[in-house]
Amino acid sequence: MFMATATLVAAREAEAAKLESAVVTDIVWAAAMPGDDLEHVHAKTTSGRIDLTFFHQTSSPDGALFAAAEICRRALNSSPTLANWRISAGPQLPDALPGSGAAFA
Results as ranks from 00 to 15, higher is better:
Thr25Glu: 03
His40Thr: 14
Val41Gly: 01
Lys18Ile: 12
Met33Val: 14
Gly35Lys: 10
Ser47Trp: 06
Thr81Ile: 04
Thr58Asn: 14
Ala64Asp: 00
Pro80Lys: 05
Cys72Ile: 07
Glu13Pro: 08
Ile27Met: 05
Asn77Val: 05
Thr45Arg: 00
Ala64Gln: 06
Ala11Lys: 14
Val41Glu: 02
Thr46Gly: 14
Lys44Thr: 14
Ala96Met: 08
Ser78Ile: 07
Ala6Leu: 03
Ala69Cys: 09
Ser47Leu: 07
Gly48Ser: 03
Ala17Gly: 15
Asn77Gln: 11
Leu38Ile: 04
Phe54Arg: 04
Leu52Val: 09
Pro98Met: 09
Gln57Arg: 12
Ser60Glu: 08
Ser79Gln: 08
Asp26Asn: 14
Ala67Cys: 05
Ser21Gly: 09
Ala10Tyr: 11
Arg12Thr: 15
Pro98Ile: 09
Ile27Arg: 06
Ser79Met: 07
Ser21Gln: 10
Leu19Arg: 04
Val28Met: 09
Gln57Glu: 13
Ile71Met: 06
Phe104Asn: 11
Pro91Gly: 05
Val9Gly: 03
Ala11Asp: 13
Leu93Tyr: 03
Ala64His: 07
Asp95Met: 11
Pro98Ser: 08
Asp95Cys: 06
Ile50Phe: 00
Asp51Glu: 08
Arg49Trp: 08
Ser88Asp: 14
Ala96Asn: 05
Arg74Asn: 05
Ala16Leu: 09
Arg12Glu: 15
Leu52Gln: 01
Leu52Lys: 02
Ser60Cys: 02
Asp37Lys: 12
Thr53Asn: 07
Pro34His: 00
Val9Cys: 08
Thr58Cys: 12
Asp37Thr: 08
Met3Trp: 11
Arg49Cys: 10
Pro80Phe: 08
Trp29Arg: 15
Ser59Arg: 12
Ser47Tyr: 10
Phe66Leu: 14
Ala102Glu: 13
Phe104His: 15
Ile50Asn: 02
Ile27Cys: 07
Gly35Ala: 09
Val9Pro: 02
Ile50Cys: 04
Ile50Leu: 01
Arg12Met: 11
Ala14Glu: 12
Pro80Arg: 05
Ala17Lys: 14
Val41His: 04
Asn77Thr: 07
Ile50Val: 06
Lys18Ser: 10
Thr53Gln: 12
Ser78Phe: 10
His56Lys: 09
Asn77Leu: 10
Lys44Asn: 13
Phe2Ser: 02
Asp26Leu: 10
Ser47Phe: 11
Asp26Val: 04
Val28His: 02
Val28Tyr: 04
Cys72Ala: 11
Lys18His: 10
Leu93Gln: 13
Ala16Pro: 11
Met33Thr: 15
His40Ala: 15
Pro94Val: 14
Ala10Pro: 11
Phe104Ala: 13
Ala14Gly: 05
Ser79Lys: 07
Ala64Gly: 08
Met1Cys: 03
Val24Glu: 00
Leu93Lys: 05
Val24Thr: 03
Ala67Asp: 01
Ala4Cys: 02
Ile71Leu: 03
Ile27Gln: 06
Arg49Ala: 08
Asp95Leu: 10
Ile87Ser: 08
